[in-house]
Design a protein around this nucleic acid. Structure first.
Length: 812
RNA sequence: GCGGAUGUGGCGGAACUGGUAGACGCGCUAGAUUUAGGAUCUAGUGAGCUUUGCUCGUGGAGGUUCGAGUCCUCUCAUCCGCACCA
């Protein structure tokens, strides 16, 4: 073996080998237990960044570790290759988004291979490829035919910079998540997927799902936003207008001193007609329209409103209370209208104070610490001023009783509301999957015939269309025949949100070349859910929630029998540089590719695993990678030395036993660490073992042949998942076979225990002495040792605590 | 405001069911080697002190215990997510 660790040569050699090897070609029908290991497929930006490196290194450790544990591992890779950057580049440079994208895929793929990760490239899929988006369209039509996709006029979020609408999930603090531009409300006819139909199921599923990070589950729960309460009707006095209000606090109903309706409520025009102050209302509504969404939603903003001069009747007291229009009531939550109870709701309180509306207290806290003259009381207490309901406990008891009253009098009922809205998937952009629907004047909205799929993206020259989708500029595309009556008809010109593509890519990986259907259901039922999904936390809501919805929808359409797409989820933390998230605009990118040249893929992988627990965010540090490079050099030296040791048939020497014990301990420890995703400590175990091996090799230069084989085999396999190139090379050099076919080592229980340990002698709980003694000695012997060595007198001890093989504590 | 998480040397971080705090690595100091630098090797490296040893020390304050980074109560700080959700 070469005395120098020539990582460039070795890494190239093994990467070429893996590209063509059968090691990771997954036969879905093998007898071995299955393990679907998946890293989130990347958007092909052109270059790997450190986040990808971390993601794929973790994934590859799992792939190789599970393979050695006898699993049939499926590890595919593909491209989330529709999306805005390619189109924006096309606008700038004129290069077609397809060409742009495919160039970047090629570049990124070569970098992924350069990292040394194993993927079954025969299964590679790309969202923009015709044989992929054909099936995206197919599934969309299935959803449409089953009323899970629909088109509707709706107020939507428009990003003027990206020139498209956005899903609620893509709006962060009132701004576009991509470009930070403040979104504008617009009323547009748009496509939605009915995710809200699955609100309850998506929520409940989180309790039964496999191992997911708690914060991701919580974020999804909050996003779904379930709340339970009552809904009842209010009638506007002197009119036949009625509207519903939703409340989680029916126990405060006697305290309702006004009602509020949202400025966008569907009754708003009729209310205005009935009002004495029509002009004032009109002025108010105009002032609202001019405000940005973010401005309106901001909690710091003072609430505004206008009195309609109309009254509604409190259904339980029959008291007449004023009806207001106010912007703090959101049209798209609940019913878009509320009963206002200022005494017991902070928002209503603030509003009532500002406009001098009556505040009527109906719940009193037992300690009487809160005075509703000064602040709202939102806690638990006892009902007052509430007629027959006085003295009941709020919330539960009183809410239940009052709700019963509403039901009995046919005014209202229990109601559960969710914050989750339907998923808006229309995008007015070019580089996405065309929505395969056709508008016929006579037949209405119809899906393209299955046999005509895919609806191909047209070739166009101008990607900018200020009023509508770029696709509408292609006459050939837009003008078509009605699938039903064959008359002239028009195609939909919007494309789909790329999250539709990524909602099912992990299904296509199971059957990527199927020409007849998106996938064979048998494969799905057998291979889903994904056993281990690994990716960044930025997808906690978007992609992960959409995919969970997709599986349920397709299940109900008969495509599969599973409920959840991803059993275990691991979210890796972000890698920062200079205290900030790496980004091109900040100019603080650390380019992983340069480290392939200067340190090698193995050193980079090892460092990225070693630098921190993988779920923590961490600061990039150049010095750290020097450390893992140094480790690999020393490791190589040790391997050369041990291979060069002369064989003897001598019985074991004491240092032989010691190194054997260390190896057994390390097998146990690394196995446990890998199972728990504690890669940083797994690497540190390897470093320790390497240090021990250095000490061992200093002592003499002979070794028993079986021990030599066992040391080499075990230590190389332990390193292999994390640094596969160097481990493969040395293993092949010495054993003349491929390490990837080896079994993960087991440890020998009898060879774990150290023969001696350092006994700690404490006096009153403080460490006073320490001494190396034989493992397993009992209390009497330990006491004797204490007396002989340290002159400790046990006769006046109040208490003696003895922990076997650890310590003795003498309390005086 | 609500929810989730995290606080340990100069730095990244270890510490199994309460049992020697600081493993492993970076950095730093000294020495060896080298024409020099780099690389490598050896030793040291939580703080303080009256340095054979003692005291303090895991964000802070209490508590339980023979013994607390770990358990309990309160509190402070930072990060992330949601945010007028009725």
């Amino acid at each position: 073996m070469n005395n120098q660790f020539e990582y460039k040569k070795i890494e190239k050699k093994w990467q070429d080998h893996w590209e063509n090897s059968e090691t990771v070609k997954c036969d879905l029908e093998s007898d071995k237990p299955k393990f679907y290991n998946l890293c989130m497929y990347p958007y092909p930006s052109g270059d790997l960044h450190m986040g990808h490196i971390r993601n794929y290194t973790i994934g590859d450790v799992i792939t190789r570790y599970k393979q050695m544990n006898g699993f049939n591992v499926l590890s595919p890779m593909g491209w989330d290759s529709f999306g805005l950057p390619a189109e924006n580049a096309a606008i700038k440079t004129g290069i077609h988004p397809r060409e742009f994208t495919e160039e970047r895929i090629a570049n990124m793929k070569s970098q992924i291979i350069r990292l040394g990760s194993l993927y079954d490239w025969d299964r590679e899929v790309a969202a923009h490829s015709i044989d992929y988006y054909k099936w995206t369209q197919y599934l969309f039509i299935k959803l449409f035919e089953n009323n899970l996709a629909y088109k509707e006029d709706a107020p939507v979020n428009w990003c003027n910079s990206c020139r498209t609408v956005l899903a609620n999930e893509q709006v962060i603090e009132g701004s576009c998540e991509r470009c930070d531009t403040a979104v504008e409300p617009k009323n547009l006819n748009q496509w939605f997927l009915k995710i809200s139909e699955y609100s309850e199921e998506l929520l409940e599923g989180l309790d039964e799902i496999g191992d997911w990070p708690e914060n991701v589950k919580t974020m999804q729960r909050n996003w779904i936003g379930k709340s339970e309460g009552s809904q009842f009707e209010l009638n506007i006095i002197g009119t036949d207008l009625t509207f519903d209000v939703f409340t989680t606090r029916p126990d405060t109903l006697f305290g309702m001193t006004f009602a509020v309706i949202s400025p966008e409520h569907e009754l708003i025009n009729q209310i205005m007609e009935q009002s004495d102050k029509k002009d004032e209302i009109q002025n108010y509504l105009d002032s609202i329209v001019n405000k940005s969404e973010f401005e309106r939603m901001s909690i710091t903003k003072e609430k505004t409103g206008v009195d309609t001069t109309l009254k509604v009747t409190n259904p339980i007291t029959n008291v007449e209370v004023p009806l207001w229009i106010a912007d703090y009531v959101l049209v798209n939550y609940g019913t878009g209208a509320i009963m206002a109870v200022p005494a017991h709701d902070e928002r209503d309180y603030e509003f009532a104070k500002k406009y001098n509306i009556e505040i009527r207290q109906v719940i009193i806290d037992k300690e009487k610490t809160i005075n509703v003259d000064n602040e709202a009381f939102t806690g638990n207490g006892v009902l007052i001023n509430s007629g027959d309901f006085n003295e009941l406990n709020s919330h539960e008891e009183a809410s239940k009783k009052i709700n019963d009253f509403l039901v009995k009098n046919k005014i209202g009922d229990e109601k559960t509301t969710y914050r989750l809205r339907d998923w808006l998937i229309s995008r007015q952009r070019y580089w996405g999957c065309p929505i395969p629907l056709i508008n016929c004047d006579d037949c209405g909205l119809l899906p393209e015939k299955y046999e005509n799929l895919p609806v191909l993206l047209p070739e166009i020259k101008d990607y900018i269309n200020t009023d509508g989708s770029p696709l509408s500029k292609s006459k050939d595309f837009v003008e078509t025949d009605c699938p039903k009556c064959s008359k002239k008809a028009l195609r939909e010109t919007d494309t789909m949100d790329t999250f539709v593509d990524s909602s099912w890519y992990y299904m296509r990986f199971l059957d990527p070349k199927n020409d007849n259907e998106p996938f064979e259901s048998d494969f799905i039922n057998e291979w889903l859910p994904v056993d281990q999904y690994i990716g960044g936390v930025e997808h906690a809501i978007l992609h992960l929630l959409y995919s969970r919805f997709f599986v349920r929808a397709l299940r109900d359409l008969g495509f599969m029998k599973i409920d959840e797409p991803f059993h275990n989820l691991f979210s890796q933390g972000m890698i920062n540089f200079g205290g900030a998230k790496m980004s091109k605009s900040k100019g603080n990118i650390v380019d992983p590719e340069s480290y392939f040249a200067t340190h090698g893929a193995d050193a980079l992988r090892l460092y990225i695993l070693f630098m921190a627990p993988p779920s923590d965010g961490v600061e990039w540090n150049d010095g750290g990678i020097e450390g893992t490079k140094r480790f690999l050099n020393k490791f190589w030296d040790n391997m050369v030395k041990i291979i060069d040791q002369k064989d003897t048939s001598d019985t074991f020497k004491s240092n032989d036993e010691e190194i054997e014990r260390k190896i057994n301990q390390t097998i146990k420890s690394i196995t446990q660490h890998l199972e728990k995703f504690e890669f940083n400590t797994a690497v540190s175990d390897l470093m320790k073992l390497n240090n021990d091996l250095s000490d061992y090799l200093k002592e003499d230069n002979t070794i028993q042949i079986d021990l030599k084989d066992s040391i080499l085999r075990n230590i190389l396999i332990l390193l292999y998942p994390m640094s596969p190139h160097i481990a493969s090379e040395i293993f092949q050099d010495y054993f003349d076979r491929d390490i990837s076919q080896e079994k993960w080592p087991t440890f020998d229980e009898t060879k774990l225990e150290n023969p001696v340990y350092e006994l700690v002698i404490q006096i009153n709980g403080k460490k006073r002495h320490a001494l190396i003694v034989n493992t397993g000695i009992e209390e009497d012997e330990v006491k004797e040792i204490c007396t002989t060595n340290f002159d400790i007198d046990f006769s006046n001890a109040k208490k003696v605590i003895f922990i076997k093989d650890k310590l003795i504590n003498i309390v005086q």
